[in-house]
């Protein structure tokens, strides 16, 4: 969880450099702090595997500045492919905890499972878009996508979950 120290400074910096004025009222109704929100996920067959394009918001400024090991997880049932941004090795395996959702308390377990997956990689990393290449072990059907980050001194944070339909792999 957030420490008081970190949380308060967040508030302070907001005050230095802005605030929102909108004709239509809006409020923070979802997501995490730090912000990890998935807005759209699409999956397409690509060669022998597939690409998953994730659009959303994930504190890109912090990712570029501090230890912010953002990780993308694509899963089908219990099977997962875990792809960290920033070049760390991807892995794949099975984790029964995925079938009923995924929360921050399960990050450590997930990271302890599976084996190296050389076929998975981050293809594009931007402030609001991540594109991931997944191996053929992610097959046609529904692909569940979530991103998470485990921050030193702050704890784990997990985004909302989105599902994409994947067809045409291996044909």
């Amino acid at each position: 969880m957030l420490t008081r120290k970190t949380h308060l400074f967040r508030l302070a910096i907001v005050g230095l450099f802005v605030a929102a004025v909108c004709a239509v009222p809006h409020a923070d109704a979802g997501g995490t702090d730090p912000l990890l929100v998935l807005g759209q996920v699409t999956a397409n067959a690509a060669g022998d595997g597939s690409t998953v394009r994730v659009r959303g918001s994930w504190e890109f400024d912090n990712l570029l500045q501090v230890d912010f090991p953002l990780t993308v997880v694509a899963s089908q049932g219990d099977f997962f492919v875990r792809v960290p941004v920033g070049g760390a090795a991807a892995s794949s395996g099975t984790f029964s905890g995925l079938s009923d959702g995924f929360d921050a308390s399960e990050i450590a377990v997930l990271e302890s499972l599976g084996s190296a997956e050389n076929g998975a990689t981050i293809l594009a990393l931007d402030s609001h878009e991540i594109v991931v290449y997944l191996p053929a072990s992610i097959t046609n059907g529904e692909v569940t996508v979530v991103v998470y980050v485990e921050l030193p001194n702050e704890g784990g944070f997990v985004s909302n979950t989105l599902v994409a339909s994947l067809v045409g792999v291996g044909s």
């Binding site: 120290k5 400074f9 302070a12 907001v14 802005v18 605030a19 929102a20 730090p34 921050l151």
Partner: peptide, 30 residues
């Protein structure tokens, strides 16, 4: 923008830690 009244918690805040995440809201229209 400079308005301190728009700071949640009335601006009470300790010094920032560059090793931790920070949330700087940057909105060009403002």
């Amino acid at each position: 923008p400079l308005d301190p009244n728009r700071v949640v918690g009335n601006g009470g805040a300790p010094p920032p830690d560059p090793e931790l995440t920070s949330k700087i809201k940057f909105e060009p229209e403002n």
